[in-house]
Simulated assay, not measured.
Amino acid sequence: MGILMTTADNAPLAPLAPASSLRDRVEEAIAAAIVSGQMPAGEVFSAPNLAARFGVSATPVREAMLNLAKRGMVDIVRNKGFRVTAVSEDELRAIVDVRQLLEGPAVRRLAGTLSGADLTRLRGLAEEIVRGARDGDLARYLQADTTFHLTLLKLVGNMRLHDIVADLRAQTRLTGLVDLVATEELEASAHEHLDLLDLLEAGAADECERLMSRHIGHVLGWWAGQAET
């Protein structure tokens, strides 16, 4: 489905991307819009209104929004719809700290252990992230980025770790991401996934951990609209 979702001021949001069901497609498009700041924190959106923008019935949209509420991305507002949850700067810093503490050591453990099949799959995802950045397709970029990071954590073999990071990612807001579309910074951060795979394949544990920590730090830098040194 190629219909674009738009905000009240008609700024384009992510198109519905391929997924396993219509509800999943709607959910991922809305999640990408929330994370990137295209659906601002504090605003209330109704299922019928969103359904009209997508050109679908209200049922899959309502189901998607209820699932997003479980993920902590929206709150249910009785008789009105769903309010996008806010994340303060302090909360965002705390999320980044925890992710760095968890994901840095995780990739260190994976250094030199991945099979050829694992590396091939991850490279496909990393290349999809780069294409999304190059084409300015935020939904594609964010979906591939999420899958890449969570796939790495699955390979560690600790699903509790995977679930914790998945929850933290749902709470993250990348409000500067829209302004980075088709910029050198977005493409540079995308290429870091390929760099990480090279380090993992080479067994460079220390470098893997440092790169992952720096990469996650973009949440408070480039992806928040802030300069980085």
Results as ranks from 00 to 15, higher is better:
Gly132Glu: 09
Asp135Phe: 02
Phe148Arg: 10
Ala133Gly: 02
Arg140Phe: 10
Leu122Lys: 11
Glu128Gln: 11
Phe148Thr: 02
Gly112Trp: 12
Ile129Ala: 00
Asp118Ser: 14
Leu150Arg: 04
Leu138Phe: 10
Arg140Asp: 05
Tyr141Thr: 04
Leu142Ile: 04
Arg134Cys: 04
Arg134Ser: 15
Thr113Asp: 07
Glu128His: 09
Glu128Trp: 02
Asp145His: 02
Ser115Val: 09
Ile129Met: 08
Gly112Tyr: 01
Asp137Val: 06
Gly136His: 05
Thr147Met: 02
Leu110His: 13
Arg109Ile: 06
Ser115Glu: 10
Leu114Gly: 12
Arg131Cys: 12
Asp145Pro: 00
Arg134Leu: 06
Gly112Met: 08
Leu125Ser: 10
Ala111Gly: 00
Leu119Ile: 13
Gly116His: 09
Leu110Gly: 07
Ala144Thr: 00
Thr113Tyr: 09
Thr147Gly: 03
Ala139Met: 07
Ala133Glu: 12
Ala133Cys: 05
Asp145Gln: 14
Arg109Gly: 04
Ala144His: 11
Ala133Gln: 11
Gln143Cys: 01
Ala111Trp: 04
Thr113Ala: 12
Phe148Gln: 08
Asp118Thr: 01
Leu119Asp: 05
Phe148Gly: 06
Asp137His: 15
Arg123Glu: 15
Thr120Ala: 13
Arg123Lys: 06
Arg140Tyr: 11
Gly124Thr: 00
Leu142Thr: 02
Phe148Val: 07
Glu128Lys: 11
His149Gly: 12
Thr146Ala: 13
Thr147Gln: 12
Gly116Tyr: 05
Arg134Phe: 08
Ala126Trp: 12
